[in-house]
Structure formats: C-alpha cells, structure tokens
Nucleic acid binder design. Structure first.
Length: 414
DNA sequence: TCTGGGGTCCTAGGACCC
DNA sequence: TCTGGGGTCCTAGGACCC
C-alpha cells in the first residue's frame, strides 16, 4: 500500500468526547441532549452530546443560551480526571499499533502506521481494530481519517462524524481538495480565511494553484506554507513524546464569579493563581524567569497583558505572586476586573537522570508521557479545589487544551 | 447572568552590546 | 565625531488550535 517514501497517517478524533464519557458513566444520560460545562457561574458549554447538537446546542454557548435552543438540555459539570483517565487508556490502545503516536489534545491523536502495515495489513484494518477496542472498552465512538500526512488525516477525520472512517488516498488528494473550503484546513482560521477570500481564494484547489509570489507578498514566509497546504502537502512528522518534549509555559487564568475592583480581593485571587502555577511548575520540574499577568476588564472587550523577566528562574508560589504583584503595581486598573491570569515562561528544565538500560529508559518515557497527559489536563481543578474548598468557584473547570498546534501561525498582512 | 481556559508560534520594535 | 550593521534579549500583541 505504501509507496517509497510515502507515509500512512491516522488522525483519531473522539466524538463529543467529554459528553460521551459522561453518558457512558451515567446510563441515565444516554440518548439525551446533554452539555458539559465548567464550574462557576460564568461558564460556557465545552462539549455537547450529538442529541444536543441536533437541537442547535453549540460549543461556546452560555448555559442559558443552550437551554433556550434546547429546553430539555441536561447540564453536567465536567470532571477533568474522568476524561484524562479515559484519554490515557485510549492512548495505551494506540501504542499497541505503533509507537509513533502524537497527542494533539485530550481527544485527538495522530498515529504514523507506515511501519505497522506489514503486521496488520492495511491502515483501514488498523482503524477498524482501534474503533472496535475503544467502543468495547469505553463505549464511545471516534472518527478516523487516513491519509499520507497529518494535515490530510485531520481533514479526513472531520469529514464523517460521528463514528466515521475516511480515507484520502495519495492519488485522490487533488480531487478531494479541489472544492474543499480553505477554512476546513487545520491552521486556517477566521482571519486567514477572510484575507484569502479578499484575494478571491475560497477553496483549497484555488489556494494550491495560487502563484506563490502573490501569497508571499501578502503573508510573508507563511505564503509558501499556505500554497503547500492548498496542495495537501505536509511534511511535518508525527512526533511522539520523548526527552525533548518539554513544556514552554505554565499558566492559569480564571474568570471571576463577579467583577471585582477591591485590591485586596484581586490580590487574593492573584495569590491563588500563583499557587496553581507554582505547584504545577514544580511538578513539571521546571522554573521560569518570565512572569506574565493578564487582566480582562468588566466590559469583556478591553484587556491587557504585561510581562516581566527576572534575573533568575523561579517556581515558588510566593515568588511568582510577588512578581505578578509588581506588574500589577505598574498599572492603574481602569475598570472592575472580570478575569485574571498568571503564567510562567522562559522555562528552565531540570536535568533528568536517565536510567542506564534501554528498556528502563523506554519505560520511564512511557510513564512520563502518561504523567504529562494527566498533568496537563487534570491537575488544575484538584489543586484549586484543595486550596480553597469553600469557594464556589472551586468547582471543576473543564478545559480541553492542546499543546502542539500545527499549521499557519501569525501573519503580518501587508 | 452574555460570551472559558489551556497552550504554541510568530512578528514588530526597542534596548543594548560589539 | 559620526554612521552603520549584526546579534541577542525583551515586551507587546495577535492568530490559531483544542
């Protein structure tokens, strides 16, 4: 099946992941329109079940909005630990088929199965086996895309939901892309779509045929990348966890239950955020010298971020708090505050002592990969809850973060 | 009771040093 | 005394992803 130098990549996307996990955990929710939300009053819908989607419920809606379009909507406050637990176990299944597994987010992964085809036959067989095991073990479905690279595999997995299996064969790429809207590509967001539309480029076919110079004139070095994307070309490798896999920043932000302007309250919240950042940084075994403070005002639209870089790296909560306070001291708050955020970057990673023997090293990396998934997705609600158990805002906050965005980055439109 | 939270990457522009 | 260039580090802001 694979030609010389040609890869076979799977992209696996769990369908309505959080909602599916909840429906599986509680049979009373099955077949019903449900929405998973974060804790606290000012939360939005993170994921909804297909039953809810059919009635118009969308991610990002406020609870009242969801209830308006679907009065029988059942609201479930999400539980990160449940999802990370399931996610980790699903990742174990993936590793039975290839060691080249890259987690894109808690519910999406790429698998390079090029070297597994000899063992299992075809990529399609692998996809069916994975689907069957996930359904059998967890009762949930996924959509799988099979293609010669990550970009196309992700595109393919999006084409049939739920429970889809879509193959984009190498000799079929141009046909599939010809009429495909550009915003279907991972990496082309609203702004980029707008700019391209202004150039009369609407489909991948048109993007792929566009003169490269025209794109680079408008978008700089991103231009050549865009043309390749339009042609369905993507050489980025599936990158498994390894010793080089390191976090670049650690941050927490939180929308307050109500807008506040009392400096004492603001400071208290800043301390909590600093503690969350510090404890996670220490768990990751990193320290950083740049501290970033982010404030969103009550009007929602105005916000600012300021950062400061220290002489040395820190990861103690009180030091992070002190740095955040020093930034805050340089500004006059113009309005009550809606959201506060603290993050630590410019990170230094402590050297790891590696085991002498190969199999021990392998085991260590596998464990670390699991820990990383757990940490990145699951720690926050626990930390925060234990810090201030009496706070209403200490509920579980559901977040599906990603940590390895691919695709087109910022562009400077000339 | 309008509108969450976790990231990564990229660019511009200024300070500073050689 | 004046002018110029390269490199690095830093801050700020934006786009994109889930």
């Amino acid at each position: 099946m694979a030609r010389d130098g040609q890869r076979t990549v799977l992209h696996i996307d769990m369908n309505a992941f959080f909602a599916s996990v909840e429906q599986q955990a509680n049979p009373a929710l099955r077949g019903k329109p449900i929405a998973v939300v974060g804790g606290g009053g000012r939360t939005v819908i993170t994921t909804s079940s297909y039953e809810a989607r059919a009635r118009g419920v969308k991610t990002g809606m406020a609870i009242w909005e969801g209830k308006r379009v679907c009065p029988e909507l059942i609201i479930v406050v999400g539980d990160n630990r449940k999802y990370t637990h399931t996610s980790s176990k699903i990742n174990v299944i993936f590793r039975d088929f290839t060691s080249e597994v890259e987690a894109f987010s808690i519910d999406e992964s790429w698998l390079d199965v090029t070297h597994s085809l000899g063992l299992f036959g075809t990529a399609e067989t692998i996809a069916y086996l994975i689907k069957a095991r996930i359904r059998h073990n967890f009762g949930i479905t996924c959509s799988i895309g099979i293609a010669p690279n990550k970009l196309l595999a992700k595109l393919a997995s999006d084409m049939q939901k739920p429970d889809g299996l879509t193959i984009i064969a190498a000799d079929d790429v141009s046909r599939v892309l010809e009429a495909m809207p550009i915003n279907e590509l991972c990496g082309i967001g609203k702004k980029m779509q707008h700019h391209l539309n202004m150039m009369s480029i609407y489909t991948c076919g048109e993007l792929g045929r566009c003169e490269e110079a025209r794109l680079t004139r408008k978008f700089g070095i991103i231009g050549s990348r865009l043309k390749l994307m339009g042609q369905g070309i993507d050489h980025s490798p599936v990158t498994p966890f390894s010793e080089e896999d390191e976090v670049k920043s650690v941050g927490h932000s939180r929308t307050l239950e109500r807008d506040i302007d009392d400096p004492l309250e603001i400071n208290r919240f800043l301390l909590q955020l600093s503690e969350m950042v510090g404890s996670r940084a220490r768990r990751y075994n990193v320290s950083g010298k740049t501290i970033h403070l982010y404030v969103r005002y009550a009007d929602f639209f105005s916000s600012w971020g300021k950062q400061t870089t220290l002489k040395s790296c820190i990861n103690q909560s009180d030091e992070i708090y002190k740095a955040a306070l020093s930034i805050l001291a340089t500004v006059n708050l113009e309005q009550p505050v809606r959201l506060l955020g603290v993050s630590l970057s410019n990170l230094k990673h402590e050297a790891k002592q590696l085991p002498l023997f190969e199999d021990e090293r392998k085991k260590l990396f596998a464990t670390q990969a699991m820990d990383t998934i757990n940490d990145r997705f699951g720690s926050m609600a626990v930390t925060f809850g234990s810090l201030i158990p009496e706070k209403a805002s200490a509920g579980s906050h559901v977040i599906p973060p990603s940590w390895r965005p691919e695709g087109v980055k910022n562009i400077d439109v000339k």
